[in-house]
Simulated scan of single mutants.
Amino acid sequence: MEPPAQTSCSGNCLLHLHSAAGEAWLQRHYCPFQRHVGSDGISRFWVSIGNNEPTYLSAHEILTSHFQSQIADFERLHGQRVQNIVVLIPASSNPNRYQSQLSAVAAAAGVRIVHFIQRSVLAASAYRSLSTPGRRTVLVFELGGQFLEISLLSTEDQDQGLNIMATVSDLGCPLFNYMVAVFPSSFGNDFDAVFLHNIRTECERAKDALCLGSAIGEFKIERLGMEMRQLVDRGWLVQMNLKLLRSGIMRCLREAGVKKEAVDEVVLAGASCNIPAVRRVLLEFFQEQKFRCSIDPANLMSLSAQQYINNFSSTFNNPVAILEVLNLGLYSL
């Protein structure tokens, strides 16, 4: 096994292990913005852009504004105009539909997308193969920030690119999923986006209390004049969070039709991969010698992305920016 990057990590990280990814999941599936369908049949959302007053904008207009904002930040930082961008997308997205939508948004923002690359492929490309020439099977485990994505990649020859065999993502927050599952008996099944976001807020409040030293966190929410309370135990929550990682790994292997023994390498990406308890979950499936973590997982994506865009910039003899696409809950991937 390669020596792991040295980084300090509080045990409290286990409580919020899926918080950021859970928020992204919720926004992806339940739009947080007020929606209005105009006479032209186009859905518009009540949002504010920058310092402007809130107004109704289409999904296309909102995403175009975000593209323009990120490009402007890049241009200010580098002092050069950007005309070409590389877009980093989740491996779990629908490639054809997603790329078509993003290409249209980029064109409206005045730039051209020269390449799309999936996150797991970018992570795996940071390392040379450990195996002898021939088939290479790589599991990319990314956990950190807004991403929990587990992908299985393979190639028949080291000179070929890595192909995605299966990807598991959008697993959400286990505590949120649990609370939503126990509510129907009290509140019924009709949950709107606002109520679901309130549930998430209460989940995070309970986690924060545990992080501050409380032995038990309390979840409390009201709806239609009724109130529900639920006590949250630290140990129970930690085990539930780790169980989600195990189920994600097993599901990815099952969907790819690959046994865990057939995996040649395990690439670790994302700061949460440095948590010892997360490493122990991976060790339940894979040998330490297969771990690729000599590059700090917390920095792997940014370092690999920088190398990638440097290569593209040389090819085009012009600066190329890399964008991580924001999904604002305006449409499902």
Rank of each mutant, 00 (worst) to 15 (best):
L245S: 10
N94V: 11
Q307K: 13
A271E: 15
S8A: 12
G248C: 08
A209L: 04
Q239N: 15
G188D: 00
L162H: 07
E265L: 10
E284Q: 14
E61C: 03
A20M: 12
Q34V: 11
H36E: 11
N12M: 02
S154P: 00
I275Q: 09
N12L: 06
M228W: 01
A107M: 06
A215D: 11
L253R: 04
T55Q: 14
F147Q: 10
K290M: 03
L253S: 03
E265R: 12
G248K: 01
E204I: 06
Q34P: 12
H197V: 02
W236D: 10
E75Q: 15
T155S: 14
V168E: 11
Q306L: 14
N327R: 15
A108R: 10
V320S: 07
K243W: 00
R97E: 15
E2G: 09
E2Q: 14
L282S: 05
N84Q: 15
V47E: 01
S125P: 01
D208N: 08
G270Q: 04
L122W: 07
F191I: 00
P174F: 01
S100Q: 15
R97M: 14
L210S: 04
E156S: 11
S39W: 02
L162A: 06
S125I: 00
P95V: 09
S154T: 05
S10T: 10
L328H: 14
N177C: 02
V281C: 07
D170A: 14
P297T: 05
G329Y: 13
T7K: 12
R251N: 08
S332M: 13
A21T: 13
L162E: 09
E149M: 04
Q80Y: 07
R251C: 02
A91I: 10
S69A: 15
A181C: 00
H29A: 10
Q160A: 10
R128Q: 12
G235T: 08
F285P: 03
V105E: 12
D264F: 01
V37L: 06
S48I: 00
T167F: 04
M240N: 14
G50H: 01
S48M: 02
G145Y: 05
S151D: 09
D190K: 06
K207D: 10
A106V: 05
H197C: 00
G217R: 00
Q306F: 07
E204C: 02
S93L: 07
R81V: 14
G257M: 05
S39H: 07
I71R: 09
E204H: 04
Y56G: 04
H115D: 13
Y30W: 12
A277F: 05
G161W: 03
Q27S: 14
C273E: 04
Q158G: 03
G144V: 04
C173K: 03
P4I: 08
A262R: 10
I295L: 13
I89G: 01
V140C: 11
